[in-house]
Design a protein around this nucleic acid. Structure first.
Lengths: 113, 113
DNA sequence: CTGTATCCAAAACGATACTG
DNA sequence: CAGTATCGTTTTGGATACAG
């Protein structure tokens, strides 16, 4: 019995290529995170400052999900506290930049209407 | 006390222009619906056939949400059963087409990796 | 044919305290 | 500094029966 999900990414099946993308960047915060990472690597604390509306827990979970999907990479610079950790886009993550920009632009235009 | 949500659409506030867009097209099914409507108007039953994985209830709810946001319009052609209802994109909805296509293309590429 | 009503399960998200 | 643990709330989606 073949499943209908013809589109597979990172072990997950999706019924449509559009829903695959949404599985990767969907949810309340992932596009916002990617938007803040699109130009440069940032530290965890810096992301927190730039996204005050997201909780530690959620930011942490979403970053981990993005890492699992190969969109974001995590680099640790110190072994002892205070820790320094930087997040940045992977090669695959960079292919999402035009999409993230389009998403942000549509939102900007729509909010002016 | 000013709220941080600077971006407003259809009465809802978002912390970032990217999240505004995701509020409109986010979720498991909305991009899929829009993908199927991008070229032509379709009847409810036809959408159901093309998206067998979504339930009646969810399809109905998501269409209504898209209608509320002014992305999709609903046109009724008969007054008595059997009803004929067609869904199509509004002008605002059409501005999302390039985005939907980009989203679908990224998903297609990613599923081949 | 085109939905709505009801009930339920799962996922996402938030608040807060605490740890390496 | 960079998270995790715990718990509760909200949102989302599914199954199914039924209605206009």
């Amino acid at each position: 019995m073949s499943k209908k999900g013809k589109h597979v990414f990172n072990g997950k099946e999706y019924p449509c290529c559009a829903s695959l993308t949404m599985g990767v960047i969907g949810g309340k915060w992932k596009t916002v995170i990617l938007y803040h990472l699109k130009d440069e690597a940032k530290r965890y604390s810096q992301l927190r400052k730039e996204m005050p509306a997201v909780t530690e827990r959620t930011l942490s979970l979403q970053l981990k999900t993005l890492e699992d999907d190969g969109i974001v990479k995590r680099k640790v610079y110190t072994t002892k506290p205070p820790l320094k950790v930087e997040y940045s886009l992977t090669k695959l993550g960079e292919t999402l930049i035009p999409l993230i920009i389009s998403i942000a632009e549509w939102g900007e235009t729509a909010s002016k209407t």
